[in-house]
Design a protein around this nucleic acid. Structure first.
Lengths: 225, 225
DNA sequence: ATAGGCATTGAACAGGTGTTTAGTGTTTGA
DNA sequence: TCAAACACTAAACACCTGTTCAATGCCTAT
């Protein structure tokens, strides 16, 4: 439960305002003055508390990362990202700000984005290993690469949420967030692919395997002429 | 073959410089002065030719969209995005600028991003329908939603390319682009999932189906208390 | 009670931004 | 040939940016 009101320290109020604006507009477009206004303080106070706009960013980074780490990734043992999605669906608008912030971090070049992505991949890798051991997930040769693919697929919902909502014609209040309607509409197709596959047979897989084999033989580390 | 030299009209040179910088730094961070310098002209001339920075953006939008539409999506009948990837692998650095530009467009709120995403979804949907008819792709109940999922998964490589390269430890010259090494490493795991599935049985799929059924009964269009 | 440290503000500053303007050559069409 | 149109530049303009600074009030410890 986020305390939306006045019981926060001024410093925290500024930081939360910054998280909201950095997430919505990106770090560059969001101005110190806008953050100050949203927090109900003067621009000078923002600098006084955080040293600089960059200092404000790192403070936001740390807070968002700690937030998502504590209530998000770490405690969700089974189901990997799926549990997080379930949490999100039960109460959207709660994580909305953090999610938007992380989306921007993943798009920009940001240490927070890097850390978050790595955490998701690591978490996914663990889940896959556990699933393979438990027999619920197919045995993959390259678990790490598979985890990267799965993580990338999962995070695409985060990165492209705006377009998913738009194409599926959902009435979305937030311009980038994804609503329950959209998520419901995509769950079954995604799980069907993950369960029965997308292709009917291994034709494409075999072709790709041959092509890659050939490719490696022809020019192992060089470029084509 | 992109003419990299001087045989372009000044207007085109400015536009190409803008595409490069907009793609690398984003529209806001890229300055008119930087574009002018890169194109070897004065800042005033940029405005003279395009009216405003926003006008320059729409010119870039139109050009990139026309470029990708002509040589990219439309002519690639089979294999959907996969053919495009093949083209890209044969000669990276050629599409690099346009790809970066489109990534920014997809991340920002941009009409070009919208148009591109819609085009990819439409193209994917057609490919799936054709694949189902030909028997190479499994029959899906909701072809459109499936196409959205596939398109989203494919584009995640574009959106998260930087993180993919980083996590897989590739030596990437461009900070966001994806190299052949990374793509090679991800092709087989992705195709394996698409061919044999990710899970071993329909346990998760059935559970999700039941949960969604239940969910729809409990609160069809309302929120939980 | 009083001094010192804090949070806070309003105003200012230096630098960067998109854009304008006046002016200069250079092409081009009658 | 001449004038109008064009491509182009240097300098300036107005505005917005992050940041600084002096001043003010408010606690709190002595």
């Amino acid at each position: 439960m986020r305390s939306s009101a006045e019981d926060l320290t001024t410093r925290a109020r500024i930081r939360d305002a910054a998280i909201g604006l950095f997430g919505r507009d990106g770090f560059t477009r969001a101005t110190v003055r806008a953050v100050a206004t949203l927090a109900g303080v003067s621009p000078g106070l923002v600098i006084h508390h955080f040293g600089s706009k960059e200092g404000l960013r790192t403070a936001c980074d740390q807070h968002v990362l700690a937030q998502t780490a504590s209530q998000g990734l770490e405690k969700t043992n089974p189901g990997s990202t799926r549990q997080l999605i379930q949490d999100y669906l039960n109460d959207p608008e709660q994580y909305a700000q953090e999610i938007a912030y992380i989306r921007q971090s993943l798009a920009d070049e940001s240490d927070t984005g890097d850390a978050f992505f790595d955490a998701v991949v690591r978490q996914t890798e663990d889940s896959i290993s556990a699933g393979i051991a438990a027999g619920t997930i197919r045995k993959f040769d390259d678990v790490r690469s598979t985890a990267v693919v799965i993580a990338s697929n999962s995070l695409s919902i985060l990165m492209l949420g705006r377009h998913l909502s738009r194409t599926l014609g959902a009435v979305t209040p937030e311009p980038h967030g994804i609503g329950p309607e959209v998520l419901r509409q995509l769950t079954l197709p995604a799980l069907e692919i993950y369960t029965h596959g997308f292709y009917t047979d291994s034709r494409f897989l075999d072709a790709a395997r041959d092509a890659l084999q050939q490719d490696t033989i022809n020019h192992g580390r060089e470029h084509a002429p």
